[in-house]
């Protein structure tokens, strides 16, 4: 590997580590920071490319911030670039969380800490509820998606089954429903 290539990989790692360290919340909170760092400061991608990566990152498996980092990194320096950018993105989390988790486990028995976390759990409930409502507006767009949502929700509450199965079956169901719709529209058009 040439020195220039190593330099690019190092730049990718450092830039994405910086972005990981200053983003609170990931996902949507990340986009403005990515735009500034990747598009305006470093010219690693155009605005349109970044939005494309972001859109694909949202509809491919995994963490959106990680998917987008891999995309930008691989565009700069191929597969090693994708890996360097992703490792940079997760590096601050590894450091911060390991330190905080270590500290918290030392203080977990203090009454005030236990009371505080009992209060925080209530807030987490509300935050998960708000996240669900936000996603609901984006993903449940007609009667059939409403049926899939309801069946998965009820099924997952009642039955003790890995979420993997719900995801696989729903992907197949979605593909089948859409394909049938396309065919139905096709035959209708032929009939006229």
């Amino acid at each position: 590997m040439t020195r220039e290539r190593l330099q690019i990989l190092r730049d990718l790692f450092v830039a994405f580590a910086k972005m990981g360290a200053i983003t609170f919340g990931g996902g949507m909170a990340m986009l403005p920071i990515l735009q500034r760092e990747v598009v305006y400061l470093r010219h690693w991608a155009t605005e349109e490319e970044l939005l494309d990566y972001y859109a694909i990152g949202q509809c491919t498996p995994g963490i959106i911030a990680v998917n987008t980092s891999t995309f930008v990194g691989q565009k700069q320096a191929g597969i090693p670039g994708g890996i360097a950018a992703t490792l940079g993105m997760v590096f601050p989390s590894l450091v911060f969380i390991s330190i905080i988790a270590g500290l918290i486990s030392n203080f977990a028995d203090i009454p005030a800490v236990r009371n505080a976390f009992a209060g925080i759990q209530v807030c987490v409930c509300v935050l998960i509820f708000n996240a669900t409502v936000k996603l609901l507006k984006k993903s449940v767009i007609d009667r059939r998606t409403a049926v899939i949502f309801s069946l998965v929700l009820a099924g997952s509450v009642v039955v003790n089954l890995s979420p993997v199965w719900f995801v696989l079956v729903s992907a197949c169901a979605g593909a089948a429903l859409k394909a049938l719709e396309v065919r139905a529209v096709g035959t209708e058009r032929d009939g006229q």
Binding site: T132, S139, V152, V167, S170, K178
Partner: peptide, 23 residues
């Protein structure tokens, strides 16, 4: 696109179920 038509509401349903048991 067709697979994601079913995937998105399923993912939301799973989070909804987690939400129910958290509550």
């Amino acid at each position: 696109e067709r697979a994601f038509y079913g995937l998105r509401p399923a993912s939301t349903g799973l989070i909804g179920a987690a939400c129910v048991s958290v509550f």
